[in-house]
Amino acid sequence: MKYLYYPGCSLRCTGKAYEESLQAVFDALGVTLEELQDWNCCGATAYMAVDEMKAFALAARNLAIAEQQGGGASPRMVSLMVPCNACFLVLTKTQRYIVQYPEVDQTVTAALKAANLSYDGRVIIRHPLDILINDIRLETVVEHAKQSLNGLRVACYYGCQMIRPYATFDDQYNPMSMDRLLRALGAEPVDWPLKTRCCGGSLTGTIQEVGLRLNHILLREAKKRGADVIATACPLCQFNLECFQSRINRQFDEKVNLPVLYFTQLMGLALGLSKKSLGLQRLFVPLGPLPASQERGDHVGV
């Protein structure tokens, strides 16, 4: 199996461990990830705030390249794997707006033409969680497991833009794909109603007191629910929840010390991959030893 893959800017910088662990996990599952050639930034929320037509055109360049690189005869669809929540939303939104709004369609088509590109609408934006659950399937993932995450209590954090406003592969109010995946590998997802509540995005850098408050609410509740670790699927959520913990503790007189890992890092541990290949050395709050390293086969439930 092979997928086209769009890393996005954050996975080359603060979210490096997400790319490392994602590559390692898919490699272990025998799936090849082929990077999108000369991809550009999706535009994130900042571009939409300045000029949305340019934001759509920027995102469409990636779609056009994906269609070209994915190849195949005209009716064939091309799956593009997009692990970052913000990139996932912007690319999905662009596709939808091209179809819904003639003005967007005309502007984007003209811009692509000026850049010697074209887009036919044959790309499907896929989140790695979607691919793992629906294409690779949990049974296959479990078959590859070398050790159980037995008893590790995980708060699965989906963040906002992966399932809002477009719930393409999971429930908008109570997404379960990450919970199911980690449960299948032996972890114990805790009941945590804030799993889709916003982390504030770049507010931790711009209006810090507001950004810290939002993350404090998430961390405090995760701790209260008995989580040992928070699992994320977005580089900005991971950064906010992990890197500001000491500041949050000081500001709100709190004692939170929760490791925040990408779900792919936890998966990698279950697949028996080395800590280095999963980028665990990049964590600010280190993950302690797993509760019980039992032999595979002890855990059931898909």
């Binding site: 080359r12 910088c13 550009n40 920027l58 590109l117």
Partner: peptide, 29 residues
């Protein structure tokens, strides 16, 4: 110290293509 920050700026190769793309939107705007 954890390799999560770098000062070198990332860039795409085909910057000319990007400029043409954005210029087209500018004109329409």
């Amino acid at each position: 110290s954890r390799g999560r920050m770098k000062l070198r700026s990332e860039s795409i190769k085909n910057r000319k293509q990007l400029r043409a793309l954005l210029r087209s939107v500018d004109q329409r705007n």
